[in-house]
């Protein structure tokens, strides 16, 4: 099978007054269509930089190293001009961030933020964009979406805001969704609901998901394969079953040991 996304020898460094700090160091992996792949690591492991590189939204002080390539649907995203990237973003690939309170525009009604995705990708009929947004908001479980369309982000709970983010990401049924800690800021009960929704939608729309997280509990529940990063390097890549039952790298074992579980004696 041709992979949907293939990251090859990716290097990312950040410049600051203190010098250059390497965030991603020679990372390679691939994701097949319809696959859910976890990118696991802790703060500072470089996992988010991989997601931002793929979306082409690294901050200005970031530099992608020579020899890096990110192939998606037959094109190298790192050499693609910005208008072509803009066309891909939201249509073929989309991103869901950890904190929907920060990612949503606070002074725009949530429904309009969903409809905007259709409008910037060529939909000229505002009513059609609005109807599509209401349908998607209904699909992600926003109660009474036609009315809630007019809500402001601050009027929604954290779980509902994350559902709105999913509606924005999924509106045009992209082939790849990059979810960066999408449930880490949520309570466990809400986390379970949002994960269940994400997994349902993934199956329904046939998309691939790159699931960036530090929480192996979430990985065990949702992913097919996992890639483990530590200090910018890829240290292990395996099926989730192998990762949990035959971890190879000491860091993976450390992460597994630290995972809060109910079945462990207090």
């Amino acid at each position: 099978m041709t992979p949907l996304l293939s990251v090859e020898g990716l290097r990312v460094a950040y410049r600051s007054s203190a010098g250059e700090r390497r965030a991603v160091d020679d990372v390679s992996f691939a994701i097949n269509p319809r696959e859910i792949v976890a990118l696991v690591g802790e703060s500072g492991s470089g996992k988010s930089s991989v997601g931002l590189s793929t979306m082409g939204i690294l901050p200005d002080n970031a530099r992608v190293g020579p020899g890096s390539a990110i192939r998606f649907e037959g094109r190298d995203l790192l050499t693609l001009p910005e208008p072509a990237m803009r066309d891909l973003r939201g249509r073929r690939m989309a991103m869901v961030f950890q904190d929907p309170a920060a990612a949503l525009n606070p002074v725009m009604r949530v429904g309009d933020q969903v409809a905007e995705v259709a409008l910037v990708h060529g939909e000229r009929d505002r009513r059609k964009a609005r109807d599509a947004a209401i349908d998607m908001l209904t699909r992600v479980g926003l109660p009474d979406a036609a009315t809630q369309y007019r809500s402001w982000p601050h009027e929604l709970s954290g779980g509902m805001r994350q559902r709105v983010m999913l509606a924005i990401a999924l509106l045009l049924k992209p082939a790849l969704v990059i979810a960066d800690e999408p449930t880490s800021a949520l309570d466990v009960t809400i986390q379970a609901q949002v994960l269940r929704l994400l997994v349902e939608l993934q199956r329904e729309f046939g998309m691939a998901v790159l699931f960036i997280t530090h929480d192996l509990g979430v990985v065990a529940e949702t992913c097919d394969r996992a890639i483990v990063m530590q200090r910018g390097r890829l240290v292990e890549s395996a099926s989730v079953d192998d990762l949990f039952h035959a971890p190879q790298h000491p860091y993976t074992r450390e992460l597994l040991a630290a995972m809060p579980r109910l079945d462990r004696a207090p």
Partner: peptide
């Protein structure tokens, strides 16, 4: 029930029937 089991063989969210 909301706490992940921490084992892909005991999944509750993405079960073989759901995915």
């Amino acid at each position: 029930d909301a706490v992940p089991a921490g084992d892909p063989r005991q999944r509750r969210i993405r079960t073989p029937t759901s995915a």
